[in-house]
Amino acid sequence: MDSASEKLFQDKVDQDIRIEPKDWMPEAYRKTLIRQISQHAHSEIVGMLPEANWITRAPSLRRKATLIAKVQDEAGHGLYLYSAAETLGITREEMIGQLHSGKAKYSSIFNYPTLTWADMGAIGWLVDGAAIMNQVPLCRASYGPYARAMVRICKEESFHQRQGFEILLVLSRGSEAQRRMCQDAIDRWWWPSVMMFGPNDDASPHTAQSMQWKIKRFTNDELRQKFIDVCAEQVKLLGMRIPDPDLRWNEERQHYDFGSINWEEFWNVVNGNGPCNRQRLAARVQAHADGAWVREAAVAHAEKKIQYGKTA
C-alpha cells in the first residue's frame, strides 16, 4: 500500500504537481518539511533582533521608517512560514517551544552582533542577498503552502536588498569615518554570509533526498558560488573590498575562486557558541514570558464576551 502511495507521491513531485496539506506524503517528507519550514520561520523571527537594535538609532527619518518596515516584513515572513508549517500538523506553540528550548535551530548568521549603522547595509546586501538566492528556487518547492509562502516572501524581499546596498553606497561616498564604517561592516559580515549556504555538498548527507523531494532545488555549493560571483561584481560599485585575498576570477571555470571557509567557526556558532547565541534566544524567551499575561488576558476576555452574549 505504502509503496504505491510513495510512487504516486514521487510521480507528482517529479511532474511538479504540488503536494497539498491533505495529500498523502511519506512521514520522512513531512518531518523534514516541518523542520525546514519551522527553522526558516525561526530565522526570520530571530533575524529581526540584530536589525531592530538600530531602529531607535537610525540616523534619518527615512532610514528609520524603512528599517521598521524591513524588520516588520521579517515578522510577516516568519508568520507566513509558521502558518505553512502548521498545515503539516504542528502548532505554533510547539514550534516556539522547540526554538526556546534550543531543540530547533535558526540560521546562524543572526548570532553575530550589529555594531554600527553600516551593519544595516551589510545585512541587507549580503545576508538578504544570500537569503534571496536560497528563496527564489523554493518558490517552486514541491509542498504547496511552502511554495506559496516563498512567493509572497520573495515579492517583499526585493526592497530589502536594495535598501541595504543603498545604505552602503551612501556611506561609501561619505566622510572618512563613514567609508571606514562601510568597509568594517563588510569585513565582519562577509564570511558569515558565505557560511549561510551551509556545509560543502560532500558534507551534506541530506541534500540528495531533499533534491529528490524538491524541497531543495540547488546544492549548497552551487548557491554559494552564485552568491560570491554576484557580490564580487557588486562590491566594485561600492569601491570597497571583499575580505578574501584569494578571491579572483577564474577564466577557465567562468566563476570566482575564493578562499577557504573557517568551518570551525561555522560549527561553533551553529552549536551555540557564537557571539550572540545566548542573547538572541534570551530575548525571544523574555518577550514570550513577558507576553504571557497578555495572551492569557485576551483569551479570558474572548470567553467573557461569549458569556456576555455579544458577537465579536
Partner: peptide, 27 residues
Amino acid sequence: NWPLWEIFIRSKQGLDHKHVGSLHAAD
C-alpha cells in the same frame, strides 16, 4: 493558546476571496 484562523482576502479589483494564509488571534 490563541486559536488559528484562516484568512481570505478579496482585493479591491478582485472577484473572489482568496485564501492567503493563517494567523493566531484571540477573537
